[in-house]
Structures are given as C-alpha cells and as structure tokens.
Design a protein around this nucleic acid. Sequence first.
DNA 1: AATTATTATCGCAATATTACGATATAATTA
DNA 2: TAATTATATCGTAATATTGCGATAATAATT
Lengths: 109, 109
Amino acid sequence: MGATKTDLFTKQQNEIAAMAKAIAHPARIAILQYLVKKNACVCGDLVDELGLAQATTSQHLKELKTAGIIQGSIEGASVCYCINPKVWKQYRDLFNAFFKEVDLQGSCC
Amino acid sequence: MGATKTDLFTKQQNEIAAMAKAIAHPARIAILQYLVKKNACVCGDLVDELGLAQATTSQHLKELKTAGIIQGSIEGASVCYCINPKVWKQYRDLFNAFFKEVDLQGSCC
DNA sequence: AATTATTATCGCAATATTACGATATAATTA
DNA sequence: TAATTATATCGTAATATTGCGATAATAATT
C-alpha cells in the first residue's frame, strides 16, 4: 500500500488531482509567483529568492516542468525558466470549471 | 529532512499550497464531485462509490473536513456530509486570483 | 439486552515526498 | 588549458501520505 489507486478513478479525476499536486507545495507556489512577477529567471535567482538548497530548488523546477506549467530554455551556462502560457490557461480553466458556481445552499441532510 | 520548510514562505504561499494539497488526490476530487452532484451523502455511499475501504474513505473525508471544504452532521447512526459553500467559494476565489489573467507571452529570455 | 449497522480511530506496511550534500556536466572566464 | 560558474542528477535520510484490517464507539433494530 502507500501508492494511490489511480485505476479506481476517472482520467479527469486523476488529472485534476495531478495538477493540484503540482502546485501543492509553498516553494512551487513561490516559484510560480516569482515567474509571473519577473516574467523569466534563472535557477540561481530562485535559489537566492527561496532560501532552499540548489539541489532542492532544481528538483521543484523539474516537477513544475514535468507538469508542463513552466518551460526552460538553455541560455549559455544557465537555464532560463518562464511560465508556459498555454498550460497556465489550462490550469486556470480547469480549476475554474471544477469550482464553478453551483447552487450550494450547504443544506446538509 | 523530509518536512516542508514552511517558515521560508509567506502565509499566503503556505495557504495556497495547503488548499491545493487538500484536493491533490483523485479520491478527494471524486468525493467533492459526488457531493456537488448529490448535494449530500453519507460515508457508506462513498465507500460504494469509490471502491476504497471504509477506513480509507473515512480518512479522506476527515482531510477534506479538516481543510474546511466539507462539513458533516450526525444523522442518527450515520454522518451526512456536504460541501461547505463558504469555503468552497474561498477556494474558487483563491485559485481564480492565483491563475488570474497576466500578460504571459511565454517570452523565455 | 443482544445483534446489527454506521462511522471513526489505531496500528502498521508500503510508497511518495522533501531536503540536501556530493558529484557530474556543460558553458564561460582567466 | 585550468579554474570558475550554473544547473542537473545521484544517493540518502527524514518525514508524509496512502491504504487497509482490526477495533472502538454509538445508534438503530430485533
């Protein structure tokens, strides 16, 4: 046990959960906020900004990149990261749809 | 190591991450979708619906309840759960604000 | 009162995540 | 070319999450 039983759920449910998991860490939220503010930055900037070790920062960047929400391009010796606008919009639309207005009277039984 | 270094991040960053974590599992997404559809249900309904063990289902319900996004009221021998509309709206507004429109040209360096 | 039904919690095993030092790799600089 | 800079990856330790059987607690039923 310990592993999530993804086969019990729909593709959509697994996708929403995976997207939520991608942003379910304050460091990754901080990275995304920093990228939105600065438009682009290199890994080293984030190491200074976050206060986490270089290895840890790189690992969080990798997770965000795997999720597709950021992209990196090699810029000489460093790597420049920025938001992937297409995927960013997908996230916005998906969370928007999930939390859409419903007639919630909170009538519990 | 292993524990998240919450002290490195702002209260807001930790809050957004915590909210994302609350819905970062397909079973919890499925529970919320079921509650939106049915308006209210008891734990046993979800055990049948999800296909997870009773103990596991109860645990996921507890996490959603701790996050505040659902509420439960004792109804005889069973417990009736429903969405907490106030917190639901907070989630919607917060994710909405986080993923708000920004001028993302995706211009990476 | 004894049985049954419903849910929560405990205890444990398996797996995942977080964090970091050490090291590898590749580009830049001296 | 050697040293430096920037990033990624490996290996490992600490902690968290997931899942479930067993059991406790409470209400309903017989």
